[in-house]
Nucleic acid binder design. Sequence first.
DNA 1: AAAGATTGACTGAATGTTCAGTCTAGAAAC
DNA 2: GTTTCTAGACTGAACATTCAGTCAATCTTT
Lengths: 217, 217
Amino acid sequence: MRQQADIPGTADQRREQMLRAALEVMAERGYPETRIADVAERAGTSPALVIYYFKTKDQLLTEAIRFAEDNWYATGTSRLARIATAAGRLEELVAMSCLPEADADPASSWVHWLDLWAQSARHPEVAGVRQKFDERWRETISSLVLEGQEAGEFGPVDPADFAVVLSALLDGLAVQIALGDTVVSPGRAFELSMRFVAKELGFDWTPADRKEHRAGR
Amino acid sequence: MRQQADIPGTADQRREQMLRAALEVMAERGYPETRIADVAERAGTSPALVIYYFKTKDQLLTEAIRFAEDNWYATGTSRLARIATAAGRLEELVAMSCLPEADADPASSWVHWLDLWAQSARHPEVAGVRQKFDERWRETISSLVLEGQEAGEFGPVDPADFAVVLSALLDGLAVQIALGDTVVSPGRAFELSMRFVAKELGFDWTPADRKEHRAGR
DNA sequence: AAAGATTGACTGAATGTTCAGTCTAGAAAC
DNA sequence: GTTTCTAGACTGAACATTCAGTCAATCTTT
């Protein structure tokens, strides 16, 4: 019978399989402690094959991070696109970074941010990924604000300033959530963020019962 | 038995020297990449001696982190104590976490936070240090708010909520500053934070020229 | 259509390096 | 003269990367 990797084995599938495996291991062990052997085992192959696909360990890990960020952002924006009001989209955006998702995608785990930041401090390659990602994120926020202002939903604030502040706030809360801070639960983080957003942009918001439809994990 | 009590403290000096060396190396290479040999070299001794003082590498690094946090917090609060108004103290607190200090203390480098967080995700020992530190920090903020409210300087807000939000905001901005984000300079971070604080607590604040008195040295 | 040639995917067994921690013994302090 | 402090040499394990091929397909040539 077919052993582990029965998949046709086309190169792209293999790569992705390895990237996912790498993300899983990274979430567990942290970026610098991730061993090629772990990734190989998780992907059901040998260390040699991992190196065969990604010339070096660093390349594997950097690519994995980029892969994760792109995925997260892509599913995020596609979800936003389905929401009618700017306020609703903003709420979804806040939820995305505060409330745990049910989909088990390891790529969306908060601890990845912590590793991403720590690695960015030393590795220019990773730093580039992060910078681009942050710019994209702030850009998303500020254009959302702009849309809301044009639609008359939001009051006048500087969209760029608001984007910097909100993204920083969400990052800071994400740290607490990622580390399981006893005081800052996801729900509380979400509510505090939304209170801030509503106050700053001048629209009404009351804690709805959105908690339930995203439990899990 | 070892008593460092009757020794003038050469042992303690050695320890501290090593802790400082460890912090320097950690800032450069990151927590998990810090080698005992590096620390020894930086401290002008041998790897064996480092192990002699700190049984293991982990112990050395954990202790170094605690040392840094305690120092940072101590010098911070002592500086706060010299300021008369609650608003002024709050401003100093914000400055502490946004504006670069001239004192060359490597312990106060922002990248340490990034490492601290990343390590906390995996190592309970480090997580404990961080949790305690964060609680202390939020406690500092919320009691500062309370003082200001009692003095009539601040409007009514929930001090605990405010502390969570402000500390998260400052953390998030610290990430950008630590990583040298092109969009979020220390000055801008400070100004945005203070605008948030003033608006939230209801007092007037205009960007003074505080930049200058924390330059050289 | 069979025999060979070519290539991409893959592997197990080295190889070589890097390090945390140990050992031994000498120097200094008391 | 015993205890504390210090360093140089060493050990053993962990680990990234290399190497020398195997295997199974597609493509060529006849």
